[in-house]
């Protein structure tokens, strides 16, 4: 199992590359979901507020 992660000595480069890719994609997904949720909350407050400008 360990030689799998060693990747012929180049493990560091390979796993860091895949980790950074996975990390950035996850961060982007979370950011987009949270972004949409905040807009929806604001609109819900806006819509329910009686004095809509």
């Amino acid at each position: 199992m360990s030689e799998f992660f060693a990747m012929g000595g180049h493990g560091f480069y390979i796993w860091v590359s895949y980790a950074v890719t996975a990390l950035l994609m996850m961060i982007e997904v979370i950011a987009v979901i949270r972004g949409k949720r905040t807009v929806e909350k604001r609109l819900a407050r806006l819509a329910s507020a009686p004095s809509r400008q």
Binding site: M7, G8, G9, H10, G11, Y13, I14, S17, Y18
Partner: peptide
Amino acid sequence: GESYRIIYI
């Protein structure tokens, strides 16, 4: 060797 696997991303 193995380092080429980075090509897949």
